[in-house]
Design a protein around this nucleic acid. Structure first.
Length: 595
RNA sequence: GGGGGUGUAGCUCAGUUGGUUAGAGCGCUAGCCUGUCACGCUAGAAGUCGCGAGUUCGAGUCUCGUCACUCCCGCCA
């Protein structure tokens, strides 16, 4: 039989008790982290979301409570009253926040019992993901996840306060929206009252926030769930949260200023970390040239060097032929890594191959020159030129990639990140931001034989590249910007097209005919024709930001109830089959038999 | 759609060349213990070796298939 809560009121949270409360009568409630029964004395570590405090139960002080404590097991829910006391000389626990005090219990109530848990919550062992997810309500009791959720709340609160101060208002946009087949796959919801028709869950509130600008709300933000039916990754869930913003009458410099202010405020409030503003800005072209990727990790240098011209005439056919066919030969200098084994180097090659590289050439810089399978193909002058370009010194490891520009950049750029991690140059408590700007507006899709929007079809081109739309649209750059933190894209946005004629022209360039554009985006084109102000915005991935703030390797650790890689919820068993009756009402018939 | 990893007690894992009755730590149960804090000591219970076939005198171990979890490529306007 459990005890009743009765009229007891909690006076403090467990983790909040310090020497300041010494002498006070307190009442705490929480879960039993651990019981240590000495036969006489019993100690209980009582836990709530703020932390753990030690309860001391002395049979001489209160035999009834002591007797109850003998039955207590892990995760029992307990309420306890007693006096906060300093721990006896020599028994202070410096590892605990509350380690200088304990509560001398005078009355104890067992509010509820617990079965033996399927796994320990003590944080000393890594538990398999599927077990954690099945018992997510228990997993969430663990300290790390409690901290993550509390910090997530703090971030949301900070964001709301900041935007409120800046004159933004939060407006909700619909979750049942219209499917637009551009971009990611939609999650579809069948409509009962419009049999045969479907809503789509929003991939982002993009169009609605633009409409809010047309409506004159001027500065909008929303912390909002978005949905994409694509395959999952360590940093991707099918439903995720964006900090979504849109502003009118601003240029992109002003947007970036406001947004980096928000990010700085978040880092200050959560980690006490001062982000120095303004953040560096890098063009897409420069990012690719120096780092190979558009989301460079700037916690370390190790920049890529373009050595195509140095090896174009060399005897090494692999490099020379790539150079002759318009490819790139790029190299990076892994400082002091000449000691790496053949196995390490093979590992790097395998890593590069993931990104389409055919191979990777390496050079160890020794006292007596280059040690490398490819050294013999180069003249002393060529080697000297490469050494200079790469700032090579004895003890360095030079890595070379020759391929099409896209593959050479991507593969060597990813390898740069990989080696930076391996060398411990990418510290989790170091935060390096960069804005990447001037993305290409369009990319050519060879399969569909049409241009696709790199960002989305509502992105405005750079004003100086306007003319290119009619001549070489593939070369036009966008008024777009991504904010990158430690090699991870945490946000992206653009100035939008607010001129209906230009938006129509953009649809044309994307191979979307006038009729199709009207059918899919007619409401946007209409809105643009009724006095749309110049506007632009950005959306931040809250989950990815939380991963970095909490030092989490998985997005699941910053989401209360995440899904597995196959997008199922092991806790509730979603998605699941539904009754025929439900399907009938929706006018939906399945094409395949269910298992 | 493709590639890699993992799956053995409630949890974390070990298990040799295919060979007797599958082990350890933690947890759990019982007993002891008045200053521990991942308390300690003693004893005990606990297994569909993910699932299904196959090879074999014999399979946790080899082969094939399959399922789940996970990391990556593609995909993610």
């Amino acid at each position: 039989m459990n005890d009743k809560l009765g009229t007891w009121e909690r006076t403090h949270r467990c983790g909040d008790l310090t020497t300041e409360q010494i002498g006070q009568e307190v009442c705490v409630m929480g879960w039993v982290q651990r019981r240590r029964d000495h036969g006489g004395l019993i100690f209980i570590d009582l836990r709530d979301r703020e932390g753990i405090v030690q309860l001391a139960l002395d049979p001489d002080r209160d035999p009834t409570s002591h007797q109850k404590a003998e039955q207590i097991r892990n995760e029992f829910v307990v309420a306890a009253r007693g006096k906060v006391s300093p721990r006896p000389e020599g028994t202070v626990n410096p590892k605990m926040k509350t380690g200088e005090v304990e509560i001398e219990i005078t009355e104890l109530r067992i509010l509820n019992r617990s079965e033996t848990l399927p796994f320990m919550l003590d944080g000393f062992t890594e538990v398999a993901e599927n077990i954690r997810l099945k018992y997510r309500f228990l997993d969430l009791r663990r300290n790390k996840l409690q901290q993550n959720m509390l910090m997530r709340h703090l971030v949301a609160k900070t964001v709301r306060n900041y935007f409120d101060d800046q004159g933004f208002i939060e407006i909700e946009t619909p979750v049942l929206t219209k499917s637009t087949p551009e971009g990611a796959r939609d999650y579809l919801v069948p409509s009962r009252v419009n049999t045969g028709n479907f809503y789509a869950l929003p991939q982002s509130p993009q169009l609605f926030k633009q409409l809010l600008m047309v409506s004159g709300f001027d500065r909008y933000f929303q912390i909002v769930k978005c949905f994409r039916d694509e395959d999952l990754r360590a940093d991707r869930q099918p439903e995720f949260t964006q900090i979504d913003c849109e502003l009118s009458f601003v240029n992109r410099g002003q947007i970036m200023d406001i947004m980096e202010g928000m990010i700085a405020e978040v880092f200050k409030q959560t980690l006490g970390y001062e982000v120095s503003l303004p953040l560096p800005r890098l063009s897409y072209a420069e990012a690719l040239d120096r780092f190979g990727v558009d989301n460079p990790d700037l916690r370390f240098e190790m920049e890529l060097q373009d050595i195509t011209s140095l090896v174009a005439e060399s005897e090494f056919k692999v490099f020379a032929s790539v150079a002759a066919s318009g490819g790139l030969v790029k190299a990076l200098n892994a400082k002091g890594c000449a000691t790496y084994s053949r196995k390490d180097l093979d590992g790097f090659t395998d890593f590069a191959k993931i990104y389409g590289a055919k191979g990777l050439a390496w050079v160890k810089v020794n006292e007596d020159g280059w040690q490398s399978p490819i050294a013999k193909f180069f003249t002393a002058d060529e080697i000297a030129a490469m050494n200079t370009a790469l700032d090579a010194e004895v003890g360095d490891l030079l890595l070379f990639m020759a391929d099409t520009p896209a593959i050479a950049n991507e593969a060597l750029g990813r390898l740069r990140g990989h080696i930076g991690q391996k060398l411990g140059l990418a510290r989790k408590d170091d935060y390096k931001f960069v804005w990447v700007t001037d993305f290409p507006l369009l990319e050519w899709d060879g399969e569909q034989r049409r241009h696709l929007a790199v960002h989305h079809p509502f992105t405005a081109p750079l004003e100086e590249d306007f003319g290119l739309l009619d001549t070489e649209p593939g070369k036009a750059r966008a008024q777009a910007y991504d904010i990158v933190l430690n090699g991870s894209e945490i946000g992206g946005g653009s100035i939008r097209i607010h001129d209906q004629a230009i938006q129509s022209r953009m649809f044309e360039l994307l191979g979307i005919g006038a009729e199709e554009a009207r059918e899919k985006f007619g409401f946007l084109l209409d809105a643009l024709s009724f006095g749309a102000p110049p506007h632009g915005g950005i959306a931040f991935g809250l989950d990815r930001l939380m991963m970095i703030l909490t030092g989490s390797d998985s997005i699941r650790d910053v989401i209360a109830f995440p899904k597995t890689q196959k997008a199922s919820c092991l806790l509730s068993d979603a998605p699941n089959a539904v009754d025929d009756k439900q399907l009938q009402e929706l006018g939906v018939r399945l094409r395949t038999k269910q298992k």
